[in-house]
Write a protein that binds this DNA or RNA. Structure first.
Length: 469
RNA sequence: GGCCCUAUCGUCUAGUGGCUAGGACACAGCCUUCUCAAGGCUGGAACAGGAGUUCGAUUCUCCUUAGGGCUACCA
């Protein structure tokens, strides 16, 4: 049988890391077994669902490269007829009933139960109202639809957790719809997973306690339930469900701050799952090839931003200069990327030093404009002023004598190294590098020379000499 | 409170009835070196506790403890 999984987010907030991980695991599983990955927007909550969030979710999935089957894309808000059909049927079969209890009454009841140490559960007051009375009251009163929850033990085999058991007597008659055209989550999810022929429901552990409610629904409607796999939660450093308090939770914020989709996918894939071997770096194809639901971890995973950064740096190193240039365009001033050749030469130098795309603007700034630096910075350890000027002049002289062609850097380097042989490496290279970068820390002088070329090199050395004179 | 889930270095994790308990991030040191990165090498660092089963438990069972999730006319 073809495996069919779905990612079913509700557009009530920005697409976050936890959801992204859930989507990824669904996608990886589908890809691994050659099944289908579907996207279903669960927008039954009219108040909280926003188009803006739906767009953000789709944007995020696209960024990560998690392709879903476009033909079978669906929105619950567009399937109200389907839910109504099932609801009507259940009503007719007396499997569900109208409940006229008000929210206030319910709240009062719940509080009373709670203070007595009882599990909060609906009393079942409206359960046996009878069709006639229900229909009468329906004309003037507001009502919700409740499931006649059978009292029994429901157990299921979770792929990651093994056997899990619940006693429905503790759950009670849950509300499955506000009315015929207003279904609630536990109901619509069951109808849709059935209609969409979902074989595996892979979702966060926070849904574990919803599962018995849904299984009860499956049984009552005469459907076979899918296989469940509940993923461990993504945790913050406080070990609680990851929240904005400790990190960006919105996926696209990571794109904004310069993370690569490849790094994100690799990182998320390792949160709660691990391949058999001691491997940490796996690209999309490798993840797909290795992924197994049985290897999913049971315990929650603390989100570790350092490792994400390390992976990001790794994937940046793997990129070709041209690819990186393309990605970097959105993170630097327009006139930088406009100077194509210079831009690429700089990228070649900075690539291994870049952890996030957003770092680049700061670290590469000096290539375009030397910051105003203190002349004291030009001194290597205790070298005297005259000596520094002298060394810079020697270098300047040598550089000016080198032809400005493709081999400029190589030739300049060779000539300058000749100077260092006599004057000392630090004594020559340090002031040179500071003159070229205006910074205490920077790439090496020859790397800079390679990027900025002869003319600019000469200019910067002359400026340094001027500063000292 | 009730129900459910979980428990290996700080973090992500591998692993087994007998191992010097492995890897990665982070951290420290060294090498390289004009500085910073990158890279290479090395190091410190863990089986929550208590019973039981067993010749032997980190591994199996139970209890305790700790953490987490759920407990909506949200999903």
């Amino acid at each position: 049988m073809e495996v069919r999984v779905r990612f079913a987010p509700s557009p009530t907030g920005f697409f976050n890391l936890g959801n992204a991980r859930t989507a990824l695991f669904n996608w990886l599983y589908a890809k691994h077994v050659g099944g289908k990955f579907l996207l279903r927007i669960e927008d039954t909550d009219k108040e909280r669902s926003k188009k803006e969030y739906e767009k953000n979710i789709i944007e995020g999935l696209e960024w990560l490269g998690l392709e879903w089957d476009k033909k079978e894309f669906s929105r619950q808000s567009e399937r109200l007829d389907v839910y109504e059909k099932y609801l009507t049927k259940l009503l007719k079969e007396d499997k569900v009933y109208y409940c006229f209890c008000t929210a206030e009454e319910l709240e009062f009841e719940r509080q009373a139960q709670l203070t007595q140490g009882l599990p909060p559960k609906y009393s079942g007051r409206c359960r046996n109202l009878g069709e006639e009375e229900a229909n009468k009251r329906l004309k003037s009163e507001r009502a919700v639809i409740r499931l006649k929850m059978p009292e029994k033990t429901i157990s299921f085999n979770d792929v990651v957790r093994g056997r899990v058991e619940f006693n429905t007597a503790l759950i009670g008659d849950i509300i499955i719809a506000k009315n015929l055209r207003d279904p609630l989550y536990n109901f619509s999810v069951v109808v849709d997973d059935h209609e969409m022929k979902i074989t595996h429901v892979i979702r966060g552990e926070d849904h574990l306690s919803n599962t018995p409610k849904q299984i009860a629904l499956y049984e009552i409607m005469g459907f076979e339930h899918p296989i469940f796999a509940h993923l461990p939660l993504l945790l913050g450093p406080d070990k609680k469900k990851l929240s904005k308090r400790f990190a960006d939770v919105a996926l696209m914020d990571y794109k904004k701050s310069g993370f690569l989709a490849d790094a994100m996918v690799n990182f998320l894939g390792l949160l709660g799952w691990h391949p058999q071997e001691d491997r940490e770096v796996l690209n999309r194809e490798e993840l797909v090839a290795e992924f197994e639901l049985k290897r999913v971890q049971k315990g929650g995973a603390v989100f570790n931003p350092e490792k994400l950064e390390w992976l990001n740096a790794h994937y940046i190193k793997l990129l070709k200069v041209d690819e990186l240039a393309e990605l970097l365009k959105d993170y630097v001033p327009k006139d930088w990327s406009a100077k194509k050749d210079l831009f690429k030469r700089i990228i070649a130098v900075e690539k291994d030093r870049t952890r996030k795309l957003s770092d680049f603007k700061n670290s590469a700034q000096f290539f375009f404009e030397v910051p105003d630096y203190d002349k004291k910075m030009l001194a290597w350890k205790n070298t005297e002023g005259d000596k520094i000027i002298n060394n810079l002049k020697l270098v300047l002289n040598v550089v000016q004598g080198v032809d400005d062609d493709e081999s400029f850097r190589t030739n300049a380097e060779r000539e300058i190294m000749l100077v260092t042989n006599k004057e000392g490496r630090g004594e020559v290279l340090w002031p040179l590098r500071v003159a070229l970068s205006g910074r205490e820390n920077s790439p090496g002088p020859f790397e800079i020379i390679q990027a900025i070329g002869k003319e600019e090199t000469v200019k910067r050395i002359e400026n340094a000499i001027k500063k000292l004179s």
